[in-house]
Write a protein that binds this DNA or RNA. Sequence first.
DNA 1: CTAACTTTGCGTCATAATAACACTTTGTAG
DNA 2: CTACAAAGTGTTATTATGACGCAAAGTTAG
Lengths: 254, 254
Amino acid sequence: MKIMLKAVLEDTSLYQPGLSIDCVIFGFHDNQLKVLLIKTKYSEKWALPGGFVPVDEDIDQAAVTVLNNRTGVKGIFLRQFATFGCAKRNDSDFSSIVLDFYGIPKEKGEWYTNRFVTVGYYALVDFSQIIPQQVGKNETVEWIDHHAVPELILDHKEILDKALETLRMELNLMPVGYNLLPEKFTIPELQRLYETILGKKLDRRNFLRKITAIGILVKLDEKKSNVAHKAPNLYSFDKQKYQEVVKNGLNQGW
Amino acid sequence: MKIMLKAVLEDTSLYQPGLSIDCVIFGFHDNQLKVLLIKTKYSEKWALPGGFVPVDEDIDQAAVTVLNNRTGVKGIFLRQFATFGCAKRNDSDFSSIVLDFYGIPKEKGEWYTNRFVTVGYYALVDFSQIIPQQVGKNETVEWIDHHAVPELILDHKEILDKALETLRMELNLMPVGYNLLPEKFTIPELQRLYETILGKKLDRRNFLRKITAIGILVKLDEKKSNVAHKAPNLYSFDKQKYQEVVKNGLNQGW
DNA sequence: CTAACTTTGCGTCATAATAACACTTTGTAG
DNA sequence: CTACAAAGTGTTATTATGACGCAAAGTTAG
């Protein structure tokens, strides 16, 4: 949220006032659902990667920019899920600390101390292809297991929770995996992804049946190597059909 | 969106800049899904009821205020569904027309001519209990069949479409009807509500089976009177169970 | 008054989707 | 070569769904 705050304050007229973007960036590694978080130097707490919205730019585009800055990857799954506008988001103590840290005088930082509303986006990215980008010297970017998320600034925890809740719900409407797994993967890996997102165990055999019934998987003539026990078969997604299903949706209740 | 624009411009520091609320208010009458729309005097086009956000107020609360102003009813179903922030929303031609109409000089109306991002909410209300409220003398408020929606200002049509799409999707996650129907209603009425929202016919007998299986209906010892043909039985919702199901959700795909 | 018609209410039946579970295969580790 | 762990491939019982049939209740047309 404070990407290039200094630069923004140089000419605040270029940015939408009182509006920010926050991204919940999910990755999958070691059977863990990871979230990309930022450790700021001006606070003990962590934060979601975020940014501001140029006045002449779509908010969706601004979210893409945030994502590119943090992950260096383009063309990934990104979806708006909610907008957060509690009045108490206006934590002037917090913004004062940030301004102090950067040595910005209060008059100049007034734009930033006003009440902010933030639009939440969540992204699904391939962990193995993303090297967290350090933006500026004053923060560290890290993948953190979603079960081990430390205290976050402001209402970022609430935003993160809502993102995960939305992702869980969207699992019923679309397949997931194309964006979170490498090109080639195994069914057990895909299953563990689902289990991790849902937070519960699934039956191996029933999972296979349901997931293949969707018609988005391509069984490769290749097995995973260097694994303990029986080598699982490798699969990849039929990108064409995958996109179709994402677009048209799965189970329609009515 | 231009409720009390004049009053707002009196002291713009009290309002969140560049941010508005737009409400898609659904009602059900004569087997038609109705939307509450505003006919403004300064344009041939219609608009969604909207408003601005006081800086010290939650956006959800601001949406409630809009709703109360328009329908005069409190405690109704209201849900945020998306935020619209296309750069082209910044239609300066449009805002100039509005300012001209109200006779507001350009300097004073600068706050309003800036680019706006709007948060979309949709509401479900009992048509029979709502008398559209006229706010100010320069606009008319009317229930309009969602199939007969005229041309709307800016991207309001897109917002309306997205609201309906969201409502359709949410039908798979929760029951609907408590907010749209009168206290007592018949199964055929409820079915027609579902059919209207979904835009397709449902089988009478299968509908009854599915809807009763949810366990939210109470069969009353009373039949609808003054109707042609066989008098249908009246039902009401078990409010307790209804709320539970809305909270916990229906079909879990996984 | 009666026959035709419309709508409601309550079923059935075949099929599809889901949950629960058993056995075999393949490779590792000791 | 034996024990073990994970993968792959079933089966079966139960439930949910979709497609219909038929009788009851009330209205309308002649």
